[in-house]
C-alpha cells in the first residue's frame, strides 16, 4: 500500500495562510468584457467578416473619393476611344492588356484607336467613357440609394416595431395585420408601382425601397420588444414611474441594438439588389447618371463581344453583396452569446 512510502518529515504540517493565498492566486480569471467589447473581439476573430469589413471600407473610400478624384470624367464621351478593353499598366495577360480578338486575330485595340499612351483599367464603354470611373460613380449612386433607403427603413421599421410591440393588444394586432397585407404583395411589385407614381429617378427609388423594406425590421424589433418588455428590469423601470419614451431609449433600444445592426447589414444588400434590378429593367436611374444596375444593363447588351463591360460592374456588385452578407453573418455570430467558445 501507498502508506508505507517514507515521506519527508514536515509533510504533514497544515499549510500556512501564505501557501493558501498562493494556491488561490493560481486561478486565472477571464478578463471581464462589456457586451460590445466581447462582440467586437469575436467579430475580429471571424476572418470572413473582418476581410469583408476592410473591403467594404476600401470600396466606400474609392466610391466616395471619386467625387474629388476620378481617373477620368465618368460622363465624358469620346467616341473615338469607344469599346476599348481593359488595360492595366504592367499586366500582360490577355483580357487585361488592351488587346482583343478581331476576326480571329488578337490585336491591340489601343493602337488601333490611336490611344497607345492611355490606360483604361476597366476599358471604355460604347461611348468611349472610362468604365472604371463609371463603375466608381455607379457604385457611389448604388451605395447612396441603399444607405439612404436603409436609414429611412431603419427609422420607420424600428419605430413601428417598437410601438407595436410596446403597446401590444389591439393596436399590435392591427399593426401586424397591416404588415401581413404589405407582405402579401411581392416587394418589387410595390416598388415598381410607387416609382410609376413618383416618376422614375433617384429620389423615388429611395422612397420606394424605404417604404417597402422596413417590414422585416419592424417584425424583428416587435418580436424582440415583446420579449424584453417582460423582463424584470423593464418592469422595475415602469414601477418606478419612468415614462414610456424614456424606457424605450434607455432600456429597449440598447437591447435591440444587435438585432437592428444585424438586420441593417442584410437590408443594405437587398436595397442594392432592388436598385440594380430596377435599373436593369429600365425604370431606375436614367442616363447620363449611372448605377451598378444601369452599367450591368449596358454591359449585358454587348456581353457576347465585349464581356468585360458587364464583368466589371457585375464583379463589384457581387463583391459588395457578398461583403455585406458575410459581415451580417459575422455580426450575428458575434452578437449571439450562444456561439461563445
Amino acid at each position: 500500500m501507498a502508506d508505507t512510502v517514507k515521506l519527508p518529515e514536515d509533510s504533514f504540517k497544515p499549510i500556512t495562510a501564505d501557501d493558501r493565498a498562493a494556491l488561490d492566486s493560481e486561478k486565472i480569471a477571464a478578463p471581464s468584457l462589456t457586451f460590445t467589447q466581447d462582440a467586437w473581439r469575436r467579430l475580429k476573430k471571424n476572418r470572413g467578416a473582418w476581410i469583408s469589413l476592410i473591403i467594404l471600407g476600401i470600396i466606400f473610400i474609392m466610391a466616395f473619393g471619386s467625387l474629388f478624384f476620378s481617373p477620368h470624367n465618368p460622363n465624358a464621351v469620346n467616341p473615338s476611344y469607344a469599346n476599348l478593353p481593359s488595360k492595366i499598366p504592367g499586366v500582360n495577360i490577355n483580357g487585361f492588356n488592351g488587346t482583343l480578338v478581331q476576326a480571329g486575330e488578337r490585336v491591340d485595340a489601343y493602337k488601333q484607336a490611336g490611344a497607345s499612351s492611355l490606360h483604361y483599367i476597366m476599358g471604355t464603354d460604347y461611348l468611349g467613357r472610362d468604365l472604371f470611373s463609371r463603375v466608381l460613380y455607379g457604385t457611389r449612386i448604388s451605395l447612396i440609394i441603399a444607405l439612404v433607403a436603409t436609414l429611412f427603413d431603419l427609422t420607420i421599421g424600428v419605430t413601428y416595431g417598437l410601438f407595436s410591440g410596446w403597446k401590444g393588444g389591439r393596436v399590435d394586432t392591427i399593426m401586424q395585420r397591416i404588415i401581413e397585407i404589405i407582405l402579401s404583395i411581392p416587394n418589387l411589385v410595390v416598388i415598381v408601382l410607387l416609382i410609376l407614381i413618383l416618376k422614375p429617378g433617384m429620389t423615388s427609388i429611395i422612397i420606394a425601397i424605404a417604404l417597402t423594406s422596413w417590414v422585416n425590421m419592424a417584425r424583428l424589433v416587435r418580436a424582440q420588444t415583446l420579449e424584453i418588455k417582460e423582463q424584470e428590469y423593464v418592469l422595475a423601470a415602469r414601477t418606478l414611474g419612468e415614462s414610456s419614451l424614456k424606457i424605450a431609449f434607455k432600456h429597449l433600444l440598447p437591447n435591440l441594438s444587435s438585432v437592428i445592426i444585424i438586420n441593417t447589414m442584410f437590408t443594405i444588400p437587398s436595397a442594392i439588389f432592388f436598385e440594380a434590378t430596377l435599373s436593369y429593367i429600365g425604370i431606375g436611374i436614367s442616363s447620363p447618371q449611372a448605377s451598378l444596375g444601369t452599367l450591368l444593363n449596358d454591359g449585358q447588351k454587348n456581353f457576347q463581344f465585349l464581356p468585360y463591360q458587364m464583368w466589371w460592374p457585375a464583379l463589384i456588385l457581387c463583391i459588395i453583396m457578398l461583403a455585406f452578407n458575410l459581415l451580417g453573418d459575422g455580426l450575428r455570430d458575434a452578437f449571439d452569446p450562444r456561439t461563445k467558445e
Binding site: 436593369y280 450591368l296 457581387c318 453583396m321 452578407n325 453573418d329
Partner: peptide, 17 residues
C-alpha cells in the same frame, strides 16, 4: 453565401452566355 450574393440576373446572363 454566393447564391445569396449573386443577383439572379447576373447569373442568368452568365448561364445564357
Amino acid at each position: 453565401i454566393l447564391g445569396i450574393s449573386i443577383p439572379s440576373f447576373v447569373l442568368a446572363v452568365l448561364l445564357q452566355y
